[in-house]
Amino acid sequence: MRDLFDGEAEPPVVTMAAGAVLLRGFARPYEAELLAALRDVLAISPFRHMTTPGGHVMSVAMTNCGAAGWLTDRSGYRYDGIDPKTASPWPAMPDCFAALARAAAEAAGHGGFQPDACLINRYIPGARLSLHQDRNERDVAHPIISVSLGLPATFLFGGARRYDRPRRFALEHCDIAAWGGPSRLHFHGVAELKDGEHDMLGRQRINLTFRKAL
């Protein structure tokens, strides 16, 4: 893997901002368990394209697991314990999901993290996620842990203001972005996904975003 700026090999940990790091390849020891558990979650609550309050259908497909699931529709952004597609609770968070989130938070300097929500995003080529803040959680003292699986992507990490110019970071399969503390409410997003073929996940990128929502 090559550095974005000087062509030298990147270290295992890359600092994005104060309280925000990339953990290169951190999820690899969990890879087989994650993918098996993901299939179980999707069998209960499949992906769907949600609608923003403004009526825009998102290019990224989403689902959730854990005690709370993040939702968006014409009534707004929120967390809910019930999947509106199935009218049943979201699938329980798999043990391997929670263990990875806790370990990554600890490695990033945010010890004691106990996630109760995992938003699962599916990107296909052409999908993107515009700059936004994660601020629907009850207490933003807890970090965000974001796990990348599948096709490579470009992560955009900005500042506390929407118009702050974001930095661009390459994300590969099993990389983790973690941010909290002074960076917890920084704007972030994902650039349009380029086409490709991952040897395990095909023409897609899966993102697991862990939060303490309740």
Rank of each mutant, 00 (worst) to 15 (best):
residue 76 G to R: 06
residue 101 A to I: 02
residue 154 T to W: 07
residue 45 S to G: 01
residue 90 W to F: 13
residue 206 I to M: 00
residue 50 M to T: 02
residue 208 L to Q: 01
residue 138 R to M: 13
residue 179 W to G: 02
residue 12 P to I: 00
residue 144 I to E: 02
residue 35 L to E: 13
residue 20 A to N: 10
residue 25 G to R: 11
residue 88 S to M: 14
residue 33 E to S: 14
residue 191 A to N: 04
residue 122 R to H: 00
residue 199 D to G: 05
residue 118 C to I: 05
residue 16 M to W: 08
residue 110 H to G: 07
residue 123 Y to C: 09
residue 203 R to E: 14
residue 163 Y to S: 15
residue 207 N to F: 04
residue 132 H to F: 09
residue 32 A to G: 06
residue 193 L to Q: 13
residue 209 T to L: 11
residue 177 A to G: 10
residue 198 H to N: 05
residue 140 V to I: 12
residue 71 L to I: 10
residue 209 T to A: 10
residue 136 N to K: 06
residue 87 A to G: 04
residue 41 V to Y: 02
residue 84 P to Y: 04
residue 101 A to R: 04
residue 42 L to G: 01
residue 101 A to L: 06
residue 176 I to P: 06
residue 157 F to T: 10
residue 24 R to C: 09
residue 102 R to M: 08
residue 143 P to W: 09
residue 75 S to T: 15
residue 129 L to S: 05
residue 190 V to S: 04
residue 169 F to Y: 15
residue 53 P to S: 02
residue 115 P to K: 05
residue 35 L to K: 09
residue 50 M to I: 02
residue 197 E to K: 11
residue 21 V to D: 07
residue 154 T to H: 12
residue 107 A to G: 07
residue 146 S to C: 12
residue 3 D to Y: 08
residue 103 A to Q: 15
residue 196 G to S: 07
residue 147 V to M: 11
residue 41 V to Q: 03
residue 201 L to K: 09
residue 72 T to W: 04
residue 136 N to H: 10
residue 160 A to F: 00
residue 121 N to Y: 08
residue 43 A to D: 08
residue 30 Y to I: 02
residue 158 G to W: 09
residue 98 A to W: 00
residue 91 P to V: 03
residue 172 E to Y: 13
residue 106 E to K: 14
residue 1 M to V: 14
residue 117 A to I: 06
residue 112 G to D: 07
residue 196 G to Q: 07
residue 194 K to T: 11
residue 176 I to N: 07
residue 153 A to K: 02
residue 118 C to Q: 05
residue 128 R to E: 13
residue 170 A to G: 08
residue 58 M to S: 05
residue 94 P to E: 09
residue 193 L to T: 07
residue 71 L to F: 15
residue 48 R to T: 06
residue 118 C to G: 01
residue 34 L to Q: 09
residue 209 T to Q: 08
residue 60 V to N: 03
residue 152 P to D: 14
residue 106 E to F: 00
residue 114 Q to I: 09
residue 111 G to Q: 11
residue 25 G to H: 10
residue 192 E to N: 00
residue 83 D to L: 03
residue 202 G to L: 05
residue 44 I to V: 14
residue 54 G to V: 01
residue 197 E to R: 15
residue 76 G to E: 11
residue 51 T to I: 15
residue 43 A to M: 02
residue 57 V to F: 02
residue 210 F to N: 04
residue 134 D to G: 08
residue 99 A to L: 08
residue 54 G to S: 14
residue 6 D to L: 13
residue 120 I to E: 00
residue 156 L to G: 09
residue 85 K to L: 01
residue 195 D to R: 12
residue 66 G to I: 00
residue 124 I to D: 13
residue 107 A to E: 11
